[in-house]
Design a protein around this nucleic acid. Structure first.
Lengths: 261, 261
DNA sequence: CGTTGCGTTGAATAAGGTCAAATAGAGTGG
DNA sequence: CCACTCTATTTGACCTTATTCAACGCAACG
């Protein structure tokens, strides 16, 4: 019932300051080092079919890059929010807080994925974002989206799409949390993770979990023991091999069939 | 385990056609009858502090109005989506579908609230939207948002905000579904409904549920029997009176204290 | 009136949570 | 390099919560 993800005691308070605040304070400390046109993730975070001019305009939106060490916060709930973020490399989790102190992982974000979209509505972030591994993000102040949009319709539409896509994703999570049983949730989670890793050119069947059982359980609305038991069961059933955080899917169709009834 | 909200057998196939398709076919059958500047919901669906010119521009976005009878669909999952909708009066539920046939209510929408935002990403609606009562909506083709945005930054920003707000709402639902117990969920639901009714000028403590126990349960990730039992318990505990769909909250603080352990 | 959908309630059951113990691993300081 | 510490993970036994199954009441409606 208590907060599950307590702050590591070995962080000094300075270290715990969220980076977002830091970034907002900067004028232009890190001009766009590598333009989007040369980024290997271009196909992931930019819409396909952009003209060179469009890409240049999008590139101009990227205010700076930001490096996070493992366990460092990108932003915290309540921080004033002027930017959205694109993950370049690494892994980030976002966590929502219930007034009574309970908290829940609301998403994991990997290369090419955009986060921070929940902060636009109120100007304050509605969740914490924390790096699960050393992570590199592009910082995109969204007022630039708004002003640039006058010139670049394609870029503007892209943000609309990203926002809508996030609604769709959260909606699927609602379905998962409200209608699927524990085994179905875990199978869905693994296959979703696998598919997203494939989009980055990694193996669909052999990967490392960057989060703990507790964090997986928190996202899926179940206890860590349940996650562990289900992973063990999947292994016993020959669907996958799991050794700590290393997953190898042995029977992807079998796993798929666990997703629905 | 089967689909819970089966189509009423007394609907003919023509009747079941979603209205969205119909609307898209129209050129301009119902020019904006009542401009936004005169709408009593202006404070709800428009950002405050808009200039008269801004309001006029927003008003020009509203393509047409649409009247739905109870149980009629506004759109269905898979329908191609060119508009978002603002509820003028009445009550709409949206339902997400799992590939295996299960379905779940993803939201209820009342006057002043915007729906259909999940369709922007892919150009196809990701859910069904069905009227729970006779309902009147404003149809806002969002390509107009995109083109008009060139002139009206405020209006454009408004859509960003609405989209982001929807992300926040879905996120709160994730927290509810993943971390709250059944009683907490029902209490949260009732108080949320109450607050939204207040925004429309209705009583906070005395209102009619426009949805069935099954639909409430579906939104909250529990069975209709559980909803019924919990409402009865709340009544027994003197928190509220319930008689069918008529709710009267007797102890709003008591109910609030049910939300968080 | 019979039918049908909605709601309530009770009893039995199953799914997942809680508690506890044991093990494995990673990182630390000596 | 080793002992120590801390955290993550696994697994078992038991318990709680919500689901399932079933019966029944009620109101609307053809």
């Amino acid at each position: 019932m208590l907060a599950q993800h307590s702050i590591k005691p070995d962080f000094g308070t300075a270290e715990r300051e969220s980076v977002a605040a830091e970034v907002r304070g900067m004028v232009d400390s890190r001009p766009n080092a590598s333009p989007c046109s040369e980024c290997r993730l271009r196909g992931l975070c930019l819409p396909t079919g952009l003209s060179e001019a469009d890409v240049r305009q999008f590139s101009s939106l990227v205010f700076s890059h930001r490096r996070l060490k493992q366990d460092q916060a990108l932003y915290r709930a309540g921080d004033s929010c002027g930017s959205v973020y694109l993950v370049r490399s690494g892994f980030i989790k976002t966590v929502i807080l219930h007034p009574d102190g309970r908290e829940q992982v609301s998403g994991f974000y990997m290369a090419g994925e955009m986060l921070g979209l929940d902060g636009i509505a109120s100007g304050k972030h509605a969740s914490d974002a924390t790096a699960l591994t050393d992570t590199d993000v592009c910082v995109v102040p969204y007022d630039r989206f708004e002003t640039l949009s006058h010139e670049a319709e394609t870029v503007q539409r892209h943000l609309y799409r990203m926002l809508s896509q996030e609604v769709v994703r959260k909606q699927s999570m609602m379905l998962l949390l409200g209608s699927l049983r524990a085994e179905e949730r875990v199978a869905t989670f693994l296959l979703n993770l696998s598919a997203r890793l494939v989009a980055q050119g990694f193996s669909a069947s052999d990967f490392i979990l960057r989060m703990t059982r507790d964090e997986i359980g928190s996202l899926l609305g179940m206890k860590l023991e349940t996650v562990s038991r289900i992973l063990s069961k999947f292994q016993k059933d020959g669907l996958l091999e799991i050794e700590g955080k290393h997953v190898r899917i042995l029977n992807i169709d079998g796993l798929r069939s666990m997703m629905g009834h």
